[in-house]
Design a protein around this nucleic acid. Structure first.
Length: 231
DNA sequence: AATATCGTCAACCGCTGCTCC
DNA sequence: CGGAGCAGCGGTTGACGATAT
């Protein structure tokens, strides 16, 4: 899935698909020195790209913990549930799915989940209408809602019955999975921190040359150590 | 086999909010 | 307080492969 390469004459910056060589340069630089300033980074990394482009490429593609490929059922359910709650806050949703970038989640949503979501909404709407109708008839007959579900299920055709059962199971699973994932998220608030601390020994440990409180990078301007940490 | 249409996804663009001076 | 510079976010674009006609 490649975009044709192009060159922006006005800014002198390259646009379009990233080449393997560019990827290597960016990954090597960020891995070694970190992303101390995205705007300045391409200059020092030897790339004819704008900082934004580098940042996006790193976040969406080159990060070592990035997960690629098919989405699991659980991931889909988390996305759908969170989207229903907070809307198009892709970065917020991405926090709950370690290894998935906001851009990827957004693409995935527009590619497949959006349709599924609207389909489920319409189905749920129909189900709710049906349930309301059933509830009313239950009230007439003094039957509890739980009982009525079984009653109704046994009354409908086999296919509908099967579909109802599957939907019900699906709803339960969704609830469970979401509670589980959210629970983990809130009970493990330092998951990302611990991840960083575990990886910082290898990939993200920036080899600092600290001398008299100065941070000196071979390819970047001199900056104060504190300033570097803050940035 | 040729063409049209659809689906996917990397990448760009413009806006917003934050920080610093 | 306001402007400049920056990172981050979400919407959109467009190339390309897959599928349908």
């Amino acid at each position: 899935m490649a975009r044709t390469r192009c060159y922006d004459k006005k800014s002198g910056l390259k646009k379009g698909t990233w080449t393997l060589e560019e990827d290597k340069k960016l990954a090597a630089y960020v891995t070694k020195y970190g992303c101390w300033n995205w705007r300045q980074l391409p200059k020092f990394a030897g790339l004819s790209r704008c900082g934004k482009s580098c940042r996006l490429r790193w976040l969406n593609y080159l990060q070592p913990n990035i997960k690629r490929g098919n989405y699991t059922r659980e991931e889909d359910q988390i996305i759908m549930k969170l989207h229903a709650e907070i809307g198009n806050k892709w970065s917020a949703i991405a926090i709950h799915l370690l290894g998935r970038s906001d851009n990827e989640i957004k693409n995935h949503w527009h590619a497949s989940l959006k349709k599924r979501s609207t389909h489920e909404l319409t189905c749920n709407g129909k189900k709710r209408e049906a349930n309301n109708a059933n509830k009313k008839s239950d009230e007439d007959q003094n039957i509890s809602p739980n009982e009525s579900y079984i009653e109704v299920s046994s009354c409908v055709t086999t296919d509908q019955n099967q579909e109802n059962i599957m939907d019900a199971e699906c709803e339960i699973n969704q609830e469970e999975l979401f509670e589980e994932s959210i629970g983990n998220f809130w009970t493990e608030p330092f998951l990302i921190d611990s991840f960083i601390s575990t990886t910082s020994n290898s990939e993200f440990c920036v080899p600092l040359e600290v001398e008299h409180g100065l941070f000196v990078s071979p390819f970047s301007p001199i900056m104060y150590y504190d300033e570097f940490l803050c940035s």
